[in-house]
Amino acid sequence: MTQDHHAHHHDHSHDPIEAPDTSNSDTALLADALRLVLIEKGGFSAQDVQDQLTLMEGRSDRNGAAMIARAWVDADYKAALLANGKEAAKTLGHDTKGTPLVVLENTEDVHNVVVCTLCSCYPVTLLGPSPEWYKSKAYRGRVVRDPRSVLREFGTDIGNGREVRVHDSTADMRYMILPKRPPETDHLSEAELAALVTRNGLIGVTEL
């Protein structure tokens, strides 16, 4: 996973590493035992766990993408999204579970990018599970200090005429980027526009 991967502009890296099966590791056994003891004690049921997994599988970056596409075609929705992300998510049927959402607009003047240096805060209800790299010490450590070179590793070159603004998600807010609408997309439907919105664009490490 070195140099040649840095040139890719895609959201998902090619040639995924075949992860070894860790389901019998000491930690996995601890995790399974913890879950089973908590079920025996009535904290929650096995069905609750299964229902939660199903709920989690239903969450993906398509939720956030739909909000962005709406904002591109509907100026009122865009204003509402920038004013109060949580409420704007709700109007499209997405519940952020009470978590405030700050939506940051990328413009000709400013490019925004999101990180959580202390842990891994991420708007999972709108973007689905966060990618492993977002949680890596490498990303968390460097993007606050050397954002332009980190962005280049994602294939994103922000000219010196634009401000790069990093957002460290240290507390109670969650963040999503409103990317610039790609050029020559006037003829596209809202659904077609949503298909152009990538997860990495919603984090701010790529442009569309």
Binding site: R145, N160, E163, V164, R165, H167, M173
Partner: peptide
């Protein structure tokens, strides 16, 4: 301002960072 946080910051001086603080 990034250039105030990191004396060796090489990007434009208008680059910034926002952090939630209690």
């Amino acid at each position: 301002q990034q250039s105030q946080l990191w004396p060796d910051y090489t990007g434009p001086t208008r680059d910034s960072i926002e952090i939630e603080v209690y």
